[in-house]
Amino acid sequence: MTSFTSNSDPSEPRWGYVWAATILLVGIVVGSWELLVRDAGLGPAYVDNKTLWADTRHQLNKHGQEAIVLLGASRMQRAVDVNTMIDRFDRPVFQLSVEGSSYLPVLENLAVDPRISGTVVVSIAPAFTFNRLLTQLDNGGQAKYIAHYDTQSYARQLEQRLTLFLQGRLAFRAPRAKPAIVIPELLNTGTLPGLDPNTVFRDRTVHVNHDLMPGDQSDEGLAAHYVRNAEPYTRSEFEPFVHYIATIVGMLQQKGVDVYFTRLPSAGAVLALESDYFPREQFWDVLEKNVDATFVHYADYPELEGFLSADGSHIDSARSVEFTAVFSDVLSLNQR
């Protein structure tokens, strides 16, 4: 039987040589990998995950009344270029939208956090607000982000900052530079993996290169997805929902928070379905009438149209800076 305790062995290897050789080998291989993936255009890349989100949420706590918080799903995240909005308002802006999910858990979280007292802009994508299948579609998306953020110790926050610091500087830490992706791709095609269609920035701005997106990115493709996942609230279901939103907004306003609800543009087949499933007068207008906040619907501001990508649902990343400037002006116009 193996001895219970380990360790002591008279013939120790030459650890000085071992570690010198190890460090040299690691330096050569990892350094070469870094150069290889950079050469293929795969630079350092942030990952749009809970870590980046939680860090942004922590940063928000430090800015009180000055802060502008953006909530929603992919429409909001891809529409707003955070830097442009910061320039426009001369205030810090925090992107807390999460792709494919409902903003409600984060709105609730902000409502009960005494440190939050700035401006909250909520993007209402009909499928993520007026849809009775939301829980099924959403799978608790933003609630999981909140749980992750809520349970972070100070050490975990520090770890997060360090991880993000390295992510922003080292290409070999990028998801597409992982050997598990690079090596099979090299073996199958003889080339390195293509660029990531999503470029994620430190401030959680996301730019999408639609030419690199896999699958059906047309408005018909998204519309088909919509049909599978949308079912409007009935009137009796919608009433308590509106009342609930009004209550949360009331809690935010009591702390001095300005709340904006915005409906960002959509077009083509997606818009046709949205109008069919969630008519403005039955949903948006009812919400606007019953909730004491500022409402900005793109249809009322022609200057917000004409920036969409081919999917008919998201702002074209190539024009997000321009759109953000216009959108910021519209929000300023509606300031209370």
Binding site: V18, A21, T22, V26, V29, F172
Partner: peptide, 20 residues
Amino acid sequence: PWPTIAFILAAMLIAILLSA
């Protein structure tokens, strides 16, 4: 032999660093 130990440790460290 020490070069083998160095090789094993380097391979492990590289795998750790590259498996982000």
